[in-house]
Design a binder for these strands. Structure first.
Lengths: 239, 239
DNA sequence: CCTCTTTTTTTGTCAGACAATCTGACCGTA
DNA sequence: TACGGTCAGATTGTCTGACAAAAAAAGAGG
């Protein structure tokens, strides 16, 4: 009984390896996905500020796609809470109140703590090394006061974290939260003194991860996210 | 300067109150929302089991709507992770692996802890009373072994919790997680002995909330969700 | 200045079309 | 029989055009 099943399992494994090796990461991109990415990026970067009306016809013209596509994209952005849609009134880029921002940061803290702990538990040594290698990069970008570069490096940081933590559910949700506060994060980083402070906090997280010390990592991660939250809320309060 | 503004604010407030009082909670329901709710309910209840293909034309016929609507609905379900869509291959009701289930339950624990703590901090006394009043109902339904009733009561329980906690972000995300594991939750509840166990755990949560003791509530909530997780994973393991 | 109409804009929905792609059946060959 | 190749049908991805209903804007009148 086990002979044929073993054989089947073997061919399956081989096929799986083949598929993985040959998988094209870029199957002919769907219009819908390109359009979604374009609009999402425009919102996240702030080129479409909160409150902006997203009129279907204009979106069609701007994106070069049909209304069908635009409407599907809107539905996805709505589900991600990046746009708010009132019936018969059309979608607008979502506003971010202080209350909502606080809620997002508080939940973000829990998610990042969860991910860092999972990273400590699940990540291979090479992934830990990758994370450790990012700490000096963060420091360098901070020293140069290059916020754009810092954003890129932090995105990389979270990329390594997410892969090593191997927790898709938490990673997906954290990504939606990050998207919602992305403008705010950049704003908060431009607060004088915030950058050098966050460098220290991130270094501490990395050090705790390197030591594979979950309790220490939790404290460090909470400190980092809470400080970011307070800076963000100050920015909102200033208008 | 403040006089006219006060007057304006007053009429605005009055108008707002009127609008709130007369607001029909049911503005002519959009086809798309009805369709979404119908499909979502079918998935959550298990009438559309995981893996089921959702063919556009068939959905149109079944729901009595056009393809535009069906496709918009699919996009929303995709964003909620209730369906998985492969390009050119169409959507299927999402499968739930043991790994994903574990991740969902672990995150659910964090979210419910967060919400319970917020409830303790923010809820009015009357809301605490409402929650306390649900404990005996849970016990009664459990004693009668009426799982359907228990599901309804637990939905009510979370409704009260969410309103009192006043944390929309966490509530929304918890709702999507609950949706993804809803079949599993029912399955887990049918495990012999699980119900009476969960009654005790829920009573302890309620007692901790009534005492407004966050630390105790956290312990109780974790115990409840972790027990639910273990029961759920056992069900998955059994096939 | 406020209020009531009338237009204009925009959304919500449908129907039909067509190319690109996937699936499964069929078929010849070794 | 097992395997690789071909072809027709099914299905998705996308576009266009249409129209009723709702909301917003513009005018008219007091």
């Amino acid at each position: 009984m086990s002979e044929p099943r073993r054989a089947a399992a073997e061919t399956e494994t081989q096929a799986g390896a083949l598929a993985a090796a040959l998988a094209r990461p870029e199957p002919p991109p769907l219009m819908r996905e390109q359009a979604l990415e374009t609009v999402k990026d425009a919102i996240i970067s702030g080129r479409l500020p909160p409150g902006t009306r997203l009129i279907e016809r204009e979106m069609c013209a701007a994106l070069g796609v049909s209304r069908s596509i635009v409407r599907e994209v809107i539905r996805q952005l709505e589900a991600d809470r990046l746009v708010q849609v009132a019936a018969h009134r059309g979608p607008r880029v979502a506003e971010l109140t202080a209350k909502t921002a606080r809620e997002i940061y508080d939940l973000r803290a829990e998610l990042e703590v969860l991910l860092v702990k999972d990273f400590i538990r699940n990540a291979a040594d090479i992934e830990v090394t990758q994370l450790v290698a990012l700490a000096p990069e963060v420091a360098a970008a901070a020293a140069a006061n290059d916020i754009d570069d810092l954003v890129v490096i932090m995105r990389h940081f979270y990329g390594v974290l997410v892969v090593g933590a191997d927790n898709t559910v938490a990673a997906d949700i954290l990504e939606t939260l990050h998207a919602r506060i992305s403008r705010l994060r950049v704003l908060a980083m431009s607060e004088p003194g915030r950058i050098s402070c966050s460098v220290r906090e991130i270094s501490e997280i990395v050090a705790a991860v390197e030591a594979r010390d979950p309790a220490r990592a939790e404290v460090a991660t909470r400190a980092y996210v809470n400080a970011a939250r307070d800076a963000a809320l100050r920015q909102i309060a200033r208008g």
